[in-house]
Design a protein around this nucleic acid. Sequence first.
DNA 1: TCCGTCTTGTATAACGTTGGAAACACGGGG
DNA 2: CCCCGTGTTTCCAACGTTATACAAGACGGA
Lengths: 387, 387
Amino acid sequence: MQTEDEERRVRVSLKDVAELAGVSVKTVSNVVNKYQHVTPATREKVQRAIDDLDYRPNLTARHLRKGRTGIIALALPELGNPYFAELAGAVIDAAGEHDYTVLLDHTQGSRERELLVTQGFRARVIDGLILNPLELEAEDLAARTDTAPLVLIGERRYDLPYDHIAIDNIAAARTAVSHLLDRGRRRIAFLGARGDRASQPAHLRLLGWRTELAARGVPADETLVAPVEGWDRADGAAAMAALLDAGHRPDAVFAYNDLIAIGAMRVMSERGLRVPEDVAVVGFDDLTEGRYGAVTLTTVAPDKQAIARLAVESIVGRLEEPKTPGGADGSDPGGRARHGDAGPAGDGAGNGEGGAENGEGAVVPRQLQPGFTLVERESTLGRSPAH
Amino acid sequence: MQTEDEERRVRVSLKDVAELAGVSVKTVSNVVNKYQHVTPATREKVQRAIDDLDYRPNLTARHLRKGRTGIIALALPELGNPYFAELAGAVIDAAGEHDYTVLLDHTQGSRERELLVTQGFRARVIDGLILNPLELEAEDLAARTDTAPLVLIGERRYDLPYDHIAIDNIAAARTAVSHLLDRGRRRIAFLGARGDRASQPAHLRLLGWRTELAARGVPADETLVAPVEGWDRADGAAAMAALLDAGHRPDAVFAYNDLIAIGAMRVMSERGLRVPEDVAVVGFDDLTEGRYGAVTLTTVAPDKQAIARLAVESIVGRLEEPKTPGGADGSDPGGRARHGDAGPAGDGAGNGEGGAENGEGAVVPRQLQPGFTLVERESTLGRSPAH
DNA sequence: TCCGTCTTGTATAACGTTGGAAACACGGGG
DNA sequence: CCCCGTGTTTCCAACGTTATACAAGACGGA
């Protein structure tokens, strides 16, 4: 041990490589960055030195100089919820395809933590942020000072100049309810109402429930709308128990998500109600978990891969926007000092033309809607679909 | 709008603050870093300027200067497995307590990706790495050149100078089997054998199964050891189906993990076997999911919080090691860093004296064993324990 | 009064990288 | 043989921060 050799070096910088290769630091930098005007001989010489020393660029320094890290932050409410865990996996994969790495945080649905995250995470080292807000208010987002691109996912909608990615919740809920109606169910409960915030996602699904019932001429029995305290299995169980305790006897349940549905089914099973004979159940999220209960769960399946892909592409797109479209080479005229243009004019809307790029500031926010499908299951026990 | 004022400035640096306050850059830095020798008057003056400009330190520059990023990478096999998702959440929380942020990647159990991760992730921006390897070989790890601290978690053991954190799998498995024996079961199947790699974690649990049976004088029927292809529900279902198809009739099942147990229970329920009357089941991991099936699942619960905490503390400890212990520069007199107390000596080898630091290179690897408990459930439907 | 000592603040040099411009080879045409 | 254009490489500065060394006062004791 104690070899003075490359093994021992704690940190290899461009300078070390340059010394070994007998060239200047910038030349090494040029090779690393694939700058075109480098002699093949020089390039090879440098490359060999790079390999010998196992040089890898220090991204912190590069970031300080260029303003990019190659890291995207992803902030989700909770990883314990399989939906978010699966979504996180999808985002990591999608980011990887663009050579981005994902910094992950969970907010526990706390407004404070969500706020913290929007203000530059813990570390101001990220190129962009994908956030699934639960409690955050529009004013919190409006007050955001960080300039990294932000894209929102999930059902909450804000009237703010940020890209937003969410499936059409009303249509999805209607599909679920329609499915139950098609099977002759009429007393369809909705599990997962939450009164506190009008823009809450549950509101949209409840709206879908009401809309579809109305469209089909079935009176909506509002006593069958059960509130929940949270979004986990226990909350579904509690809601279902409350419903039954109050004397209601629905013949179907549409749950805000699969976890609530699973909790509800558990209560029904305890009370001797058979699923689906006595009560048909439809959930939301298409968790793998739902496929392996005593009864497999029919569910609305948002396209998680699409959500992840769109979110990542939104960030990447925003990052590349300022670039001149035709600037194929590396010269990048006027490249640096991007600061000062990112701030949108603010209030006044004014996103008239939908031109591909209108280089002049004015970010045009996009509302993207990935698809969803209704996955109907009849106790089929298949292989776990790879995903 | 268009105010030239603080609003408009996209980036405020120490220099700007220094100019406004009429002091030097370093003085501002001193105030920001709470350096003690600053006159109250100066401090206040600077603080006012900081507030006026809404200055926030550029962490990238700070990291470049200090050589730390505050980011720990966490590489897990798969986020789709709730165990890993819950573990990831615990790691994020534990890291947060030390002001670290977590960069997350999943390796899909691919040796190639695991290798990639050990070699400095995609980005050289991490202070340390927590890795749960599945396929990685000892030689891969031995060839590692990256110098960031690495800690291994999970059941695979390597004889290498890295901290390793895993519960005592043999003891845990014995506890599970003992529990079943106590209830009069004698034909206890083991679901989750995998022949391919001797050091595979499943081997340890299988060993525990054999050991406990032997200790209790119950002959081990090796035909009740069912192999699996993977670690998910479908694999458990397939294994159980194969077992039953072969004509075996176990009166109990000890599954390698909860997912396999859930898959197995699903098959049993399809075939009219009652749990636990006909077949008692014990799983491993204590997934929330296991609490809400038709039958709640008794399971071995590794202390995920402890695993996460120990892993993070290992990294943080290694990072702070080089520091001089007595350097009480005022703030925080050595208070933090509890590392190094929890672990029993593990095997024989090495760590003779408990000397705090032996600064001379020579890293002493630690084998840490968080605890576990057997969680026995009798169809209790409680609230989801917060976590 | 003078000189150490202690306190407080400043100037300067890094950290590792890249952009811009200047410098330097190398041939070919005049 | 010189000069100039082209293509390649080097030099210098800067990104924003903190460490080090040092200067400037304040203060007390001899």
